[in-house]
Nucleic acid binder design. Structure first.
Lengths: 193, 193
DNA sequence: TAAATTGCCTAACAGTCGTTAGGATAAAAC
DNA sequence: GTTTTATCCTAACGACTGTTAGGCAATTTA
């Protein structure tokens, strides 16, 4: 069975929102990619805003589910961080369009939903923060300013949407490995033990 | 002497483009913040597109000038990287609105200017890449995939526009220091030498 | 003092926007 | 066989978009 019309609409919209931005992509643009008229979209969705909400909140839910799982399943902080990064990279690379919209276009969410979204995002960041606290207790991480560290880590992960190419040489897992290595040990030459 | 009207327009536009996005911010919005009519803007600027171009290319020029200077003035790779990061943070934090537009809204540049912009951005990235090559030759950096490393570093720097608060506790220089430290040595506990 | 320039105005343009109303057609469910 | 449901259509709405034309008043220059 192929995807429901609604799902097709959301997918097309995500691609266009990514390419042109939420405001610049019109309902008529979305309709055109599906070979129908703009008015016909409204048999499947309530509004343009609703499409954006669906895209943003789905991705948010997926990320939160992943970080909660990691914090539940693993004990070791290094392992936790490594898994969290792997999951993040996986979710982003497997849903490039939605992820870009999630990261770039959430600003266009309207009032009540916007607040809800931001609190979800904060919750995700706290999941990462928790890992850093764990790592400090285990004496393997050194990050005095946790919030700063989390934002720096996530920024490195999120920029993926700007340059990741599904046809490139690196697989998502390789990217995750590189990033983990980079985040853990930085640029400096590793001393031979 | 206060800023020219043109400069005021660009500044107001940058703020609005940052807050609402390029497409969502209208000429009437910009005019309103200056207490004039939208049509009056055209005594000072050619088009909405021109405003975006001015914002994007100014920031690009400033960044490129800074990286070229660093590569000219310093020899030591670690010092170079540290200075490059410091300059980047300085430029971004001192021009938060323009920088956000530069990073987020450049997609809306139109055809010929868009290409020009991308090549400037590439040139900036190459400036950083050069530093990593230096560091490898000096045997102080270990980054097999230079492009990957540069993108990861820049992503950490660029996310600043998303969370930096001029009224926050950290000064730009402190932020730059933290970032340099993070990029150089990562999260891991530093062994006592 | 006359001429030119600057900075703004009102009015309007052609086009696009998201969305609704109301109806047609075909397939699925009862 | 009738009703429901899904999917699409045309036509139109009011609002808003970037931009131009043409003119008025004040300031600066010659």
């Amino acid at each position: 069975m192929e995807k429901s019309r609604k799902e097709q609409i959301i997918q097309s919209a995500a691609k266009l929102f990514k390419e042109k931005g939420f405001e610049a992509a019109s309902m008529r643009d979305i309709a055109r990619t599906l070979g129908i008229e703009a008015a016909s979209l409204y048999s499947h969705i309530k509004s343009k805003d609703e499409i954006l909400e669906l895209i943003c909140f789905r991705t948010a839910d997926e990320l939160i589910k992943a970080i909660d799982e990691v914090n539940d399943l693993y004990f070791n902080a290094e392992e936790k961080l490594s898994m969290a990064i792997k999951n993040h990279v996986k979710i982003i690379t497997e849903n490039l369009d939605s992820s870009s919209v999630f990261l770039r276009e959430w600003r266009h969410l309207t009032k009540p939903k916007l607040k809800e979204f931001i609190s979800l995002r904060d919750r995700y960041e706290n999941g990462f923060k928790q890992i850093l606290v764990n790592g400090e207790n285990e004496n393997v991480f050194d990050a005095p300013d946790k919030k700063f560290a989390v934002l720096t880590i996530l920024s490195a992960l999120n920029w993926l949407t700007e340059w990741y190419n599904p046809n490139g040489k690196m697989t998502p897992d390789e990217i995750a490995e590189h990033l983990t290595e980079f985040i853990l040990t930085g640029l400096r030459v590793k001393s031979v033990v």
